[in-house]
Write a protein that binds this DNA or RNA. Sequence first.
DNA 1: TTGTACGCGTTATCAA
DNA 2: TTGATAACGCGTACAA
Lengths: 341, 341
Amino acid sequence: MSEKTVHATVDDVAALAGVSTATVSRCLNAPDRVVPATREKVMEAIRALNYSPNFGARALASRRTGIIGAVIPTLENAVFAHGIDAFERSLSPGKFALLVASCGYDPEREKQQIEALVARGADGLLLVGFDRDPAIYEWLAIRKVPYVLAWACGDSHPYAGFDNVAGMAAMVRMVLDLGHRNVAMISGLTQGNDRARGRLEGARDLLAGEGLAFRGVAEVPYGLESGARAFAELMADRSITAVICGNDVLAAGALRAAHRMGLRVPRDVTITGFDDIDIASITFPELTTVRVPHTRMGEQAAALLQQLIEGKRGESVLLPTEIVARGTHAPPTARRRFAKA
Amino acid sequence: MSEKTVHATVDDVAALAGVSTATVSRCLNAPDRVVPATREKVMEAIRALNYSPNFGARALASRRTGIIGAVIPTLENAVFAHGIDAFERSLSPGKFALLVASCGYDPEREKQQIEALVARGADGLLLVGFDRDPAIYEWLAIRKVPYVLAWACGDSHPYAGFDNVAGMAAMVRMVLDLGHRNVAMISGLTQGNDRARGRLEGARDLLAGEGLAFRGVAEVPYGLESGARAFAELMADRSITAVICGNDVLAAGALRAAHRMGLRVPRDVTITGFDDIDIASITFPELTTVRVPHTRMGEQAAALLQQLIEGKRGESVLLPTEIVARGTHAPPTARRRFAKA
DNA sequence: TTGTACGCGTTATCAA
DNA sequence: TTGATAACGCGTACAA
């Protein structure tokens, strides 16, 4: 005890303060259950010994870690970076910390990451989207691990998110109202990605409701060049006057391709995005897109998950999306409308 | 034991497999120290009971968590989002997981976050930059917590990073070689940010070496509009022909302001950035900037930190920066060179 | 190669 | 309000 030991324990603190270990523990976890006088003695000893509780021991005895896990496709997508940032900032400081894992849009890897986080003692989980192997949900239920889903909505699980289908439908509605009839879409990969799928279907269904169909659909990986390439191919059909994109990055790529092809936006083609991330207001012209409240979503998700973890019941929250009409949309012009191949 | 209990323990597994708990433990942590035959029995029991080791108990007994902590200013800055993403992907799967905390560029908050992560049992830490209260480094040394610094370089601590000073100096060198003499700079906030400070000083020193000085310096918060505003103010001095920006976001903002002011880039003004994040190739014209290997940096940082944690000694790694000459630079034109106020 | 038995540092139950 | 003490579940010398 008199040795210069690096890590003091509760016993050391208790001894120095002249109390029991139980009291020391209480001072840290339920200060109100200790008389101010003794509490002061204990805190004094804690400072003197530079004591800090052992994480493993605490987790073992209390059966919780204060660690919240999040599995996201990738932080390279600004949408997730911003959402996760807000999520982390909204975690009660001192009470919870964030363990992040990425899965690169791979469902199998997502499953592994979920298991890894739970194995690491995560008290709760933040996941992206609804669509995944039901076995995962069952497993989570058995293990009694609370979770919140984000970037989507639904009624089968707790979530803090928005409606991809409705958001995209609204955008297509606007494009149709402008007079466009020959519309194409550049969608993100829908495989194992219900957000991308929702957006694609939202657009498709709205068109169908008007008795229309896409003049072309490209389903491509996330990325600027990816969007650019898809745009160039789609526009081989000279009748197309509007290209709906599944996200802002694809739209920015499309815009770049348009410039290269000598097409003027929005005079020759209308291009729309989704998400309203930073780049949407940097392109020229600035992108007409669907704004998603990523930051508020992260905050709400954090609040909801913390409630669930503490045993309270929380309500899912559906955030509104909104069309941000900037510079890449306009009515179809004669040049394209009557263009020939 | 026969009850439908949710969490099986080593004892359950040992009983079912007909071995001791020690053997079960070995199967998990040192499979080679167990004969294949018994190992198979044990793994079978593990599967049957759906067993997974208790994190707290394991951490307590083994004195390590397999958790690596990272404290960054914010994930909203793409630079950190990409670096952290690469870092996380490079962590040995199954062995280490990433606990992230943000500090919003606030040194005091960074200190708290570091303590919080260590308190949560982090086996090692990833931190941004070198400049911080020496007490923190001492504390880390006493606690024997390995750490790696990134996004900068130096010889006082292990790091995986790059030279902000040299990177910016090279850019200013290029601008001067183009013929510019009336140069201004939009710098990020240098307070508690050695990366921003390094870039500012790198530029300043190079100018000084040529007997020159900035015609103006604005030190502003991170952000598009922030950069735009600074640019507009700086350009009140009509003699300025080049504006060096501390990062790509500020540069994109400056570019936007230039458009608004009716200035043509690079004909009327040269604008340069730093980092080469996505937006650098989306602006019009595309941004001339300094490329920083954020992804490789994240990977190297992960490799180095894991080595340190495992007791091996690792070498710091200095990554090269590189000028990416795109569309926002050109020699000064007569119009600006001889412009009058 | 496998088993025994103890220690790891807290929390939580129950009495006092 | 405080104290004694039993878990908590796993790793690991040490012994067999």
